[in-house]
Nucleic acid binder design. Sequence first.
DNA 1: CTGAAAGCGCTAACAA
DNA 2: TTGTTAGCGCTTTCAG
Lengths: 344, 344
Amino acid sequence: MKNEGDTPRAVTMRDVAQAAGVSVSTVSHVVNNTGARIGRDARERVRQAIEDLGYRPNAMAKNLVKGGSRFLGLVADAIASTPFAGQIIHGAQDEAWQHGYVLLVANTEGNEEAEASAISMMLEHKVRGILYSTWYHRAVDLPAGLAEADTVLVNCYSTQGSVPAVVPDESAGGHDATRMLLAEGHRRVAFLNTRTPSPARDGRLEGYRRALHSAGLPFDPDLVIEVQPDQEGGYAAVDKVLAMRATAVFCHNDRVAMGLYDGLRDRGLRVPDDLSVVGFDNQEVIAAHLRPALSTVALPHYELGRRGVRVLLGLDAPEGKGKGPVIVDCPSVPRRSITRPSEN
Amino acid sequence: MKNEGDTPRAVTMRDVAQAAGVSVSTVSHVVNNTGARIGRDARERVRQAIEDLGYRPNAMAKNLVKGGSRFLGLVADAIASTPFAGQIIHGAQDEAWQHGYVLLVANTEGNEEAEASAISMMLEHKVRGILYSTWYHRAVDLPAGLAEADTVLVNCYSTQGSVPAVVPDESAGGHDATRMLLAEGHRRVAFLNTRTPSPARDGRLEGYRRALHSAGLPFDPDLVIEVQPDQEGGYAAVDKVLAMRATAVFCHNDRVAMGLYDGLRDRGLRVPDDLSVVGFDNQEVIAAHLRPALSTVALPHYELGRRGVRVLLGLDAPEGKGKGPVIVDCPSVPRRSITRPSEN
DNA sequence: CTGAAAGCGCTAACAA
DNA sequence: TTGTTAGCGCTTTCAG
């Protein structure tokens, strides 16, 4: 691993020039193959010298003179430490890479101090822009430093200023989830919503109502049951949904669905024969491996990250209006937890 | 966000110096507060100018002159896109940050080309070193470029050269998992191991045998059943473990345990009353929320990332020997899936 | 076709 | 206590 001699001072362009018997500017030209016409032989000698010396251009020096880096900052509240939102990093990374940018990632774990110092560090590295993202969809207060850079919010939005944002389409997601159930002929569809106020809660409920409405079904408030948004919540709600004589249930997320599965099994009931179920999130480890596999609607984390850098780079307009956030679709993922209603 | 005027050329140290009526070196001194004694008033004028102008030091320029960056590279095969290994990023990030380093993250998704270009990019940015990590513990072939930098392997190891590595202690983990069961008095402990050859498979088996041995129990090959390492595998194995009259099962991972739970439930059996279960990985979404919550052994992803940067930075010796990899402990996470054996 | 030279923003002697 | 002056490694006119 590298450290052999004492101070094996990195080989620079000058070393290459010397070895090739040309000037640094000539080397620069061949390295970046600019339009400059360099003689066949000179070019070859340079290539050779580069090879022999193992020359690596110094990106920092280049950025310095070019006046601007190829860095994109991504500050996340808990994205690297949360089971599935890591896809935001992944999507951002891929898109950034594609345009020659490198991601500077900072996981702040919600710590304001860490956040501030992450942002200054990015600013000092003269990042082209900063992606500020959260692991679950919500409103955020922007850290002060962000004002100094081009910023786009990912999976969150700002209430105050109008900063470009990219968020999932909760409402359409809720609509599609419900629609999957309705399409099979269900008429009494319960909705196990979260009790935590959030865009997810409001949006999905709105979508649920729209789907009902489109199907000519009345909205029955008793059918929406608010639960703790995890396995425990789903488990605790079985009796209520059974009491409502629902034939299908739209769960606020896959974890709730998982709890519901458990509760149903404990009562000797089966999915989807006794009850059709649809989740939300498409949390792989759960949804794809429940028995039966859970039909759900995917939270488009990867796409959120991708679109985030696109709007940051000005590749995607921040929506036609120029105002509202970019809304990303939540694709349905049909699996095996839905069937036609049997009894009535 | 920022772009207001045309070319609002970034404010530099010289601007500050000018505004404060001092020289750049004075500004430099107060910015970095070096030992240099600067007059009260001069210092104050500089601070003021910095404030007024909104000056931000240029990290690239600084690195250039200092001859070396504060970057650490992290190239991962699928770490950001996998449900729980994102913790490796997180751990590395935290430790790096603590020492003033910034992480350059690259998710290569196993693509060799992406990998090579990620590595050159890091090299060009003169990273202090590179962490090469995989999402599951395995042997790897090192990409050529890595030879040019200080490298440490995280969650993987090289068969050829002896590159420093940090890996989880599979054997101790397998031992502890088994021990949890033995400690409650179980004597017939089945082991649902993966059939995929891997350090996890061998290490955990070895640990299982050691635990048995320490407890004075014979090793019964029939008790180790090889399965597909996921929910389906666990589900498919129920009858076999029941046939073996085991009172407890050590599952190769939490997903297998989840499948086992399902299979058991379908047969009207309960965990832990009818069968005690212990998993491996401590995959939160699953382990903590199964009913009953699953006792398991944690894969120390966060710690792997942390230790990785520590050995890279030379803070932790690559083990006393100077040879073998750094082995990180897998902590037991007792929950509610284990009880004393009832029947015999 | 190729080279000389002027910086990019900052640090670090060395003077003053 | 503060200012001058070289560069760090590279790009980029502008002359040969």
